[in-house]
Design a protein around this nucleic acid. Sequence first.
DNA 1: GGGTCTAGACTGACTGGTCAGTACAAAAAG
DNA 2: CTTTTTGTACTGACCAGTCAGTCTAGACCC
Lengths: 187, 187
Amino acid sequence: MPRVTGTKRSILDAALELASLNGITGTTMEDVAVRAGVAKGSVYYNFSSKDKLFEQLLLDGIGALAETLRQAREGKSGAGALGAMITAMLEVIAGNQPLAKLIAAEIFRTDRSWQTHLQTVRREALAEFTAVIRETQPERTDAELMAGTVFGAVLVGGIEWLAFSPERSVREVSESVLFTLSGRLTA
Amino acid sequence: MPRVTGTKRSILDAALELASLNGITGTTMEDVAVRAGVAKGSVYYNFSSKDKLFEQLLLDGIGALAETLRQAREGKSGAGALGAMITAMLEVIAGNQPLAKLIAAEIFRTDRSWQTHLQTVRREALAEFTAVIRETQPERTDAELMAGTVFGAVLVGGIEWLAFSPERSVREVSESVLFTLSGRLTA
DNA sequence: GGGTCTAGACTGACTGGTCAGTACAAAAAG
DNA sequence: CTTTTTGTACTGACCAGTCAGTCTAGACCC
């Protein structure tokens, strides 16, 4: 059950669809309004600015991802937890491809006014990976770095998957990512 | 030794510096001209359009990365080749941080007119990883997917490193990434 | 019932600024 | 004399954001 419904919802949906195709800067508020089937004024009635609109879009999206990772980890530990989180993240990517593309394109940016918030939520998602890694590797001091590495692996792997071999199943891709992390490439 | 010198070079340098801070759309041609210490007319004399300017910037950058990976792989094979490539890629990222940030921010976009060229060069870089993986895992059909996964791991790991623990050495980070791929997280 | 008022959602023409790209004449540079 | 660079002024498109006004549903009164 979506927390946002009605006009707000259709504006957010339209914004996501358009931005995943044309980028945020390539999407005008007029475009969003037309796609959502409302007047431009309504967009501004519901969101004070373009920045705020896309801020909410991305924050909601990454927040939901963090929540998914949290749930996937629940009750598990070690390699099992990591595997579950990777599968869950791939499922999120597959289930909301436009969002995944948008996140990938925007997460490294440093030029937006709301980047601070985005970084916060991003680190929240990363923290889930960090916690699991710390658990199994308490002696290492680079758990955060490794979490970033794993996150990047899954994100880029996931996008690669959807772009170039969408016929594969989540299961296969999950297995492929785990294989990549299994040491059999570096042994 | 740069293939491009003089006015062209200083325009490219200025464009890179500004765009890594403010994004491509956040960088005006006027800005670039001022930073390069050159008249706006000269920018357009040397580059027919803003798109062409940034196209060359990114294509050169990723092309150079692909070339670096090629060289790192030379004469090696298997895990040794992969390790060398990861280290080399991290060195490129560390040695040209503005470029790395720009590449990370732009590589997933699909909204620019020259995206096709960018994708081509990107796949060229990925192909280096793919080749090494195919070599050691000839029976697997997901070498490209794994290459994307490794590329993402190194790219995101590298950016994480520079952003949040720049005090670490390339050696340390390289070791950390290899540890992540070593199977000790998933065993 | 009918009349009046109010509040919130929504509208779309309009404004003001920004910026890519142009024009051009004159000056360096080689 | 050809190529490159300069400086400045200009144009035209585009677009974020505004605002005066419309629409609707419900509340309150007689």
